[in-house]
Computed example of a mutant assay.
Amino acid sequence: MGTDRMGGVRVAQRFSGVERSATVALLETVQRLRREGVDVLDLSGGEPDFTTPQTVIAEAVSALEGGDTHYTPSRGLPELLGAIGEKLATENGVHVDPATGIIVTPSAKQALFTALMTVLDPGDEVIVPTPAWVSYPAMAALIGARAVPAELRAEDGFRLSRQLLEGRLTDRTRALVINTPANPTGHVLDGEEAAEIVAFAVEHNLVLIVDEIYEKIVYDGHRHLSLASLPGVAERTLTVNGFSKAYAMTGWRLGYLAGPGPLIAQALKVQEHTVSCAASFVQRGGVAALTGAADDIAAMLKEYTVRRELTVTALNALPGVSCAYPEGAFYAFADIRGTGLTSAAFAQLLLERAAVTVAPGSAFGAGGEGHVRLSFAASRDVLEGVGERLTRLAEEWPAP
């Protein structure tokens, strides 16, 4: 029975295993410190500092001025569904019917929750390779299911193997979440890993939920691979994506869920009975993003490459810290085990002595301890300031 209470009012038992988002809490800490006059340089979040492409803004403004402020079909605007379908086919090799195989959602986060709600019952289990984004386990818990961590190792480059997955399988396992490029590690799934994941899912009749929100942010010749494009797995794969990271549209809250018609038909019920639809004028902006913002994405990726270099170089200059270059996304996942500190203690040290905020690796689950995550989606000026502060800190803080 649920016994947790607030002010004497009973709350659902499901919340007993769910904490607030660690990354959201860090953002609130930064905002509070800045109100208090502290010059905090924040690398704890995952928000691009770029302005949304002008073509996207112009289209949304035009829609607003034209009175396009009403409900859309719950699946999404036909124009946006068509643009997403075309994008999936040409860029990802994923073929779905835009009329039956896609739902436009108010954020990729909502698409993820919808996907999990669609395939998990209370008591079911979903395997989540970790370190992982903080909301995967929380979403599962809110549904009444359980996220089972498959702990990846930094020494293996955070690569996933079938052997590791088999060790997490039970008779309650229903799904597997894959994030590529990965937050927080920056690892990009390769063909060998993908083949093992597909074979595992097919043999055990599991649904694959694939989070591809960072797909356009890859470096050093790495290429994004969509699992749903591989033979024999499309009918069991739900692909999640959105506009926040690649198009600098975090505040627009626009994402989508794509997959086989029978699964999407059930997912549509979640959409219809919760959020109804994404905002009409925001969807118009989404069409413009998919059809007219390629140059903006290329420019942002070029800048991320410079920022990655600044961040990794500054981290590797710290005593006891080692940081590999991430293959994708815009996070550096630094190994701080050589300092002798926990990730929480290290993050606190940077905050107290350098006024720099980072996310402790422990927030990202099993395998995250011993690391901290820094976002280089911040401006170059901020990153250069962080580098200067870390250099001063290194001079006064000898290696253990």
Score class of each variant (00 low, 15 high):
A299Q: 09
A299D: 06
M300G: 04
M300K: 14
L301P: 06
K302N: 06
Y304K: 03
A314D: 01
L315D: 00
L315F: 14
L318G: 11
G320C: 11
G320I: 11
V321A: 04
S322Y: 14
E327M: 14
E327D: 15
A329V: 09
F330H: 13
F330T: 02
Y331A: 11
F333S: 08
D335V: 11
D335K: 09
D335M: 05
I336F: 07
I336E: 03
T339I: 01
T339C: 01
G340L: 12
S343Y: 09
S343G: 15
A345M: 01
F346R: 09
F346N: 10
A347E: 12
A347H: 08
Q348P: 04
Q348N: 13
L349M: 14
L350M: 13
L350G: 10
A354V: 02
A355W: 14
V356Y: 13
T357I: 09
T357R: 13
A363F: 14
G365D: 05
G365L: 05
A366W: 02
E369K: 03
H371K: 02
V372N: 07
R373N: 11
L374T: 00
F376G: 00
A377D: 12
A377R: 07
A378F: 10
R380W: 00
R380S: 13
D381S: 13
D381M: 11
D381C: 05
L383Q: 04
G387D: 00
G387F: 03
T391E: 14
T391M: 07
R392C: 02
L393H: 08
L393A: 07
L393I: 04
E395W: 06
E395D: 07
P398K: 13
A399T: 13
